[in-house]
Design a protein around this nucleic acid. Structure first.
Length: 349
DNA sequence: AAGGCGGGGTC
DNA sequence: GACCCAGCCTT
């Protein structure tokens, strides 16, 4: 049997039952693919279920507010996916009259849809012969063929795309694509792959040359920067607080947070007080504050380690731009803020 | 071509 | 700790 035959045979025996595998609805396929970008099935699954329940059609999603979409996306990360998802839903619903693009070329034009996702939707929903290359495919092919071209180099991206395109089963592209990804996810894993029972262990170059742990090759490592965040949790006598919307280009765009002061280092209580006195950040003159967490909570992102302090600031009355504490949970917030809200008992204040 | 963008899981 | 995950976008 050749590669594709043996792979598809393995898939028929070992595939997981996943909800997006029992539909050809391009809206559902698209939704699942966006959710699964850089996200493991286990983590994305509950979000997929929540989205199809809340937004059964692309028109439901298009008619929602971005804030509501972000709220449902809360905790999944890479929030540009949610913003692009909503934007593209509106585009398809209103500009394209609800007609989902049905080929690789047109799918690629959609915001948030790159080569991988366009290939996935084209093959799975429309049976087009378009090879997917995701992290799983890079790993499977680099090991099976013993290719050490860095997978994130321009040459590597091109080489693996060409290779996958030459291997894909033209009679069943949807099955082939899902099979090779499933194989990479559950069998040819990054660490401790199941080579002993692998259907390819008679001719996997990496296994035969003892290079399984060396492949695939990836360039560079991400440099992590450390930042110091001070969130100001205002509370007034009427149980109001402040939230601000994050704008600009950085992390958590369009999500909400307690007013933030970034500092060069972790602030002690007197340093925080000095900062406020000098900069008159707190316009209210009559207030009491306390530090919620004595030791920084360290929130780790891929590129940033956020050393975070929450300062509780009690005042008599906040301006009209404040919101009732009871409404805080309506706003999409970073998981860091969400965990604080859950842990901090507003009622006792 | 390089860097930014989340949060969770594994080893 | 380091690395990975059904990648994409901007510069």
């Amino acid at each position: 049997m050749d590669f594709k035959q043996r792979l598809i045979h393995w898939y028929s025996d070992n595939k997981r039952k996943l909800p997006w595998r029992s539909t050809k609805n391009p809206y559902f396929i698209w939704l699942s693919e966006i959710i699964l970008q850089q996200t493991q099935v286990k983590q994305g699954l509950p979000y997929y279920e929540a989205f199809i329940k809340q937004y059964p059609t692309i028109f439901d999603l298009a008619n929602a507010s971005e804030q509501d979409v972000l709220k449902l996306w809360q905790g999944l990360g890479y929030y540009s996916r949610a913003r692009n998802l909503h934007s593209t839903a509106k585009h398809i619903a209103f500009d394209l009259d609800g007609k989902f693009p049905n080929n690789y070329k047109d799918l690629l034009k959609l915001k948030g849809v790159g080569d991988y996702t366009a290939s996935a939707i084209a093959s799975i929903a429309f049976n087009q012969v378009a090879a997917v290359v995701d992290g799983n495919v890079y790993r499977v092919l680099s090991r099976f063929f013993g290719i050490d071209t860095p997978i994130n180099s321009t040459a590597g991206i091109k080489e693996f795309k060409t290779l996958a395109s030459s291997l894909i089963d033209k009679e069943q592209p949807a099955t082939f694509n899902q099979a090779i990804m499933e194989f990479g996810a559950t069998q040819c894993k990054p660490k401790n792959p199941y080579c002993i029972v692998c259907p390819f262990n008679d001719r996997c170059v990496a296994l035969l040359k003892n290079l399984v742990n060396e492949l695939p090759v990836k360039l560079k490592k991400t440099k992590v920067t450390t930042k110091y965040f001070n969130f100001l949790v205002f509370i007034d006598n009427d149980k109001n607080t402040f939230l601000e919307k994050r704008i600009g280009k950085g992390i958590w765009q369009n999500l909400y947070q307690f007013p933030l002061i970034e500092s060069e280092k972790s602030l002690k209580v007197d340093e925080f007080q000095k900062l406020n006195t000098e900069d008159t950040i707190l316009e209210c003159t009559d207030f009491e504050y306390s530090l919620y967490n004595e030791t920084d909570y360290v929130h780790k992102l891929s590129h940033q380690h956020l050393h975070t302090k929450f300062w509780i600031i009690e005042v008599d009355q906040l301006p009209n731009s404040s919101i009732p504490i009871s409404e805080v949970k309506k706003y999409p917030v970073p998981i860091l803020i969400g965990k604080f809200i859950d842990a901090f008992n507003f009622q006792t204040t």
